[in-house]
Amino acid sequence: MSFMSPAVRFQNVSRRFGSVRAVDGVSLDIEPGEFFALLGPSGSGKTTCLRLIAGFEQPDEGHIEIFGERADGVPPYRRNVNTVFQDYALFPHMTVGENVAYGLMIKGVGRAEREAKAKDALAMVKLAGYEVRRTAQLSGGQRQRVALARALVNGPKVLLLDEPLGALDLKLREQMQEELKTLQTSLGITFVFVTHDQGEALSMANRVAIFNEGKIVQVGTPSSVYERPASRFVADFVGSSNVLPPEFAAAHGGHAMWTSLRPEKIQISSKSNLVPAACAHATGTVTAISYQGAVTRITVATGKQALIAATPAGTDVRKGDSVTLIWPKSAMVAMGEDA
């Protein structure tokens, strides 16, 4: 029965800071072995949720279970959970090796054994031979790896990562995304990470919980969250979307509800007579063109509603052109009435 319990379970958890409900009635199950993202804008409660799992915060209401065990009142140092901090929080007075071996030293593991384990952990994050370096000598990416090794060497059941890639530059970020993913798959540990970057959440996580104002507004796989946003907030926050008012959606073959239409689902055509039956269309004038490398985003004013279409680079349109926009009716996703 214990193998059935989720890695982390939030049961109606609330956490208040003064009069602010940072986390407001959150219920959530994170399964063992998942790579789970807590995604949301700053102040949405995602970091507080991470700190609740780590034990730095205690819930005011509700319960948290870690692998079936109640975590209420258990201090951080008695939880089998480790954290990679946003600023890495490496101990400046210790070498890289001492940093990594810290948790083992506290547990009373003998010097030889902990040095060997620290060495293995550093090799795992591709920093073999860095034991004697000072943390001040490391680059941002290397510090991140040390923080990762320092957490993983303790063999946590759940690894928590707070904005793990936030401080890295783009190239390094993409590389670390890959490595974290590989590491998680090979270790099979549950990873829970906090991010405000929807691209990061979609590319790394098995499942994503999207936070807004202390509440979870949607939980699902990256593709389900992207393809089927449950609310206008999700449609806006995850990727970019044309949010269509009910009247416009109904007039174009959708439901009379607020509706999401992803820009990349819209094609641009100069002819208006070749629209397939399964597609909707609108005509209008190009008002803005934004070149973004792989795609070009074209804003078209169609009557009252402006639509943005993401087209492959090289699409030949100019500002002021009269164009027809065509999209599959199935690409219009009706959403709940939350915002």
Binding site: A54, P75, F85, A89, L90, I106
Partner: peptide
């Protein structure tokens, strides 16, 4: 850095 204290607690101290 206040996080150092939390990091230490997180690592079992």
């Amino acid at each position: 850095n206040g996080n150092l204290v939390e990091a230490s607690m997180d690592l079992g101290a």
